[in-house]
Simulated assay, not measured.
Amino acid sequence: MINAGIMIIDRHGKDNVSLLFPLFENYLNRKASDEEKYDLVREGVVIFTGALAKHLSQV
């Protein structure tokens, strides 16, 4: 799933940076995401944020 998400971000991230960054940031700032059961989801969001960061210079 992580690889699929990265592929999607690689292909469509440039056109969606302004949409995705606030979404990822909002998730990471939520208190519920501090619970241990959300660790894998939080890890994925961090990875996707890094993948999306490649597109920042192109915005």
Rank of each mutant, 00 (worst) to 15 (best):
R11P: 01
Y27D: 07
F21Q: 07
L19I: 14
H55F: 12
F48I: 05
K14W: 02
A53Y: 06
K14L: 06
E25H: 06
R30D: 14
E35C: 01
D39K: 13
A4F: 07
L40Y: 12
G50C: 02
I9Q: 01
K31R: 09
V59G: 11
R42N: 08
V41A: 10
N26D: 13
V59D: 11
A32N: 06
S18F: 08
Q58L: 10
I2E: 14
M7V: 13
A51M: 06
A53Q: 09
G13L: 02
E25F: 05
L19K: 11
Q58M: 08
S57M: 11
V46N: 10
R11T: 15
Y38N: 14
T49S: 15
L52K: 01
F21L: 06
F21S: 06
P22E: 02
F21P: 00
G13T: 04
I9C: 01
G50N: 13
F48H: 04
I47H: 00
D39A: 15
E35M: 04
L28V: 00
D10E: 15
G44W: 00
K14S: 10
E25M: 04
Y27K: 03
S33M: 08
I8Q: 08
G13Y: 02
L56P: 02
S33N: 04
L52Y: 05
D15H: 10
I2Q: 14
F21D: 04
K54L: 12
T49G: 01
H55T: 07
L56F: 15
L28M: 12
V17N: 03
A51N: 03
D34W: 03
H12S: 13
R30I: 04
K31S: 10
E25T: 09
H12V: 11
D39F: 10
Y27M: 12
L52I: 09
F48N: 00
I9R: 00
N29R: 11
M1D: 15
A4R: 12
L56H: 10
F21M: 08
D15A: 15
K14H: 09
S57R: 10
F24Y: 09
A53P: 01
A32H: 04
N3Y: 07
N3R: 13
H12N: 13
Y27L: 14
E36M: 03
D15G: 12
G50Y: 05
R11C: 07
V45W: 01
L56N: 11
V59S: 11
T49W: 00
